[in-house]
Design a protein around this nucleic acid. Sequence first.
RNA 1: GCCCAAGUGGCGGAAUGGUAGACGCAGGAGAUUCAAAAUCUCCCGCCGCGAGGCGUGCCGGUUCGAGUCCGGCCUUGGGUACCA
Length: 853
Amino acid sequence: MTRYNPAEIEARWQSAWEASDVFKAVRSADKPKYYVLEMFPYPSGRIHMGHVRNYTMGDVIARYKLATGHNVLHPMGWDAFGMPAENAAMAIGGHPKDWTYGNIKDMRDQMKPLGLSIDWSREFATCDPEYYGQQQALFLDFLQEGLVYRKNAIVNWDPIDMTVLANEQVEAGRGWRSGALVERRELTQWFFKISEHSDALLDALDSLDNWPAKVKLMQANWIGKSRGLQFAFSTVEGPEGHDRIEVYTTRPDTLMGASFVGISPDHSLAKELEKDNPDLAAFCAECRKGGTTEEAIETAEKLGFNTGITVRHPFDTAHELPVYIANFVLMDYGTGAIFGCPAHDERDFEFATKYGLPIISTYLPSEESPEALDEAYVPAKTDKVFYNRGFAGEQWQTGHEAIDAAIAFCESNGVGQGVTKFRLRDWGLSRQRYWGCPIPVVHCETCGVVPEKKENLPIELPYDVDFSTPGNPLDRHPTWRDCACPSCGAPAKRETDTMDTFVDSSWYFARFTAPRAETPTITEDAAYWMNVDQYIGGIEHAILHLLYSRFFARAMEMTGHLPKSANEPFDALFTQGMVTHAIYQTPKQDGRPIYHYPEDVDLRDGKAFLKEDGQEVEIIPSAKMSKSKNNVVDPLNIISNYGADTARWFVLSDSPPERDVEWTASGAEASHKHLTRVWTLCDKIAAMDPGAAGKDDEALLRAMHKTIHDVTLGVETFGFNAAIAKLYAFTATLSKSKANHAAQRKAIMTLAQLMSPMTPHLAEDIWKHQGGEGLIVTAPWPKADDAMLVDDVVTLPIQINGKRRAEISVPADMSKEEVEKIALAHEAVIRTLDGATPKKIIVVPGRIVNVVA
RNA sequence: GCCCAAGUGGCGGAAUGGUAGACGCAGGAGAUUCAAAAUCUCCCGCCGCGAGGCGUGCCGGUUCGAGUCCGGCCUUGGGUACCA
């Protein structure tokens, strides 16, 4: 009897796989291709259980597809640009490049022991000049295609550090380092014209049959197609050039209830009025304080400033409405001006109540007059009839019908026109930071903004930069900016902004198809490998990353870098949950908790105590693993204690993959025990007498075929936890089986195959131990025999009025009438019916009988 | 604020609209052992002696039948355009 020694067998099989090059993806016409990709990691320095879970899921799919005869591409790379590298450089010194490449090496070393079926020959990092140089080439092609332009946009400005802040660096409206109140400031920035593709990106969602419905819905809402009315209010005594205020509304049916007009503090009229009204200017300045996020703007207290200007209602010129500057009106959406109808909009209601504006109802819940409204009455339900009074006596039901009727009415009366608008804004890609892909353009005094020549790419980041003061080191670099104008040759200055890191991750999946190419992609490779057949990653990327990638695929198609068939790059998407872990904390004097590491805590009877002094510790369950909370479980410890197969098995077994999983030490222990049990079982079967007679051989094989069926289905539908439950059950069946050696050997080898995507090392070892041919990784996936899946006799529960009262065993093919007769004759049924005649009997063959009394 | 999810025993969870709690953890009882570890067997939603009743976040609805479908809430999580 040997001992299960994961350290030894895992190293051995990883070498065997490497030696045989089984995971190297080579184009070939003789097999269907399958491209499986997990969202590539940011090289933070340590892998965590979330990575293990994400890559193990992808690995299960990759290995399963390999076993079902596919030519599999399963690559890995690094999303390597971004703020943390610069933050580390500022906090602990060193250089972002060294920090990043050091982290990549560390993480690769931590990842390799997991035994993932990755083609490491295709690995790259987005901070490799070979990668970002090709990204610069893409940028130039997009520029030429008219997909990129410059305009002003608002950023968070820290007035003390004199630097642009990311939203993450703004805490409660203040800069995270300086503590200064953040201001909004306009900068000229580069934009991708993603909004021109709004309709296409929205419509194509329908074709993504293998994407989660929730992700498609979130994207659709984000793109936000709306039909509304755009029209102008005429001002009564507006300043010169402001005799009209353009307004866009999605609720033109409530126009008769308008009681004020709100304009953004950044609206041209507000800016005009600011010039000679100090109070108004002060109000606008106040509105411009705080972060730029939609969340910050929408949750801020609603504030208004009466400009004193009024406008005429388009259908009642005697009715004058006040114009307010309102902090909740976004300049980026619509026209930067709205009309407020407090009776039918919660936010307008709040505003009107605060500033004493009239509340005019246009809809009634019935034909009777309404009492005074004390909250906004929003007639949202289309199944009820509401009446709109106004519009010269026209009455409409609510919903789209009323909106369409209102637009038609306004158009025919010369008040504006119906327009379609999108919420989606263009993608601002300029970042005033060092550790990103330089934007390959040059600023020339005579020629203006000039694209860099392709032969000068890559425009590499300089290494000699200084992080001792805040701001973009490229701006301060003594020589890097100096260059010759690509157009006239005169001395010119480089653009010092770098690209948003979302650009890097918007095409890496295409680059994996030809990672060393001298062009962004190679036609034949992209045509062969694209699309990604299965993409796997966190739900937190449901909108931005996935939408940007979809846009990029289209832009790459327009510029000849991807085939038309790849303009939706991800055929199937799976979004997995996070790995969580309990937080152990004790209170500190100042109220802030002290966080304790799991290894410093003893668990007894569901309570936790400090090992050091026995003090009881508060347990906060299921928190996202976070370094600052000391609740990160290092996968390396698990691997060194139990082996990679145990870590893989556990992250797949306990929770459904789309949900968060809580890491528990006891769960990992249990996984390891189970794998040991399978190992021992293999040994036991190998030692059996091949000539001895067995008992119930057929029953074992039936159970085996059911397991093949269930596990295959589980793997194909991401039901890994359910598949593993079936494997537990089959292992128990096999270990109790008295079947002969041939049947048991068949069963353990099939079990190994079914386990091989999850625990590949153990599976290889069992395969070899039982005399399997070649590597299990390339052995064809077992096939369930349909004839072995059907039972002859089924157990049917009998319900009376939906409550289970009895059960009967009947042949599977028994007729409904027979089943009904047997059910009614059942002693428990007769007793419960107590002489009453059943009104109805429902027999669902193979499922249930329900007697309605 | 807005958009999208999730909520089932002590815990993680299972369940094509058809026996709620598969499988695992923890717990309990027993076997083995000089003893322990390891291993194996059995029990294990709540109330009730029992018959039985109650149970899938809360309230209501559809259905012969609802964890599952519909409406309204509550709580937690994700996103909210410069975290990745």
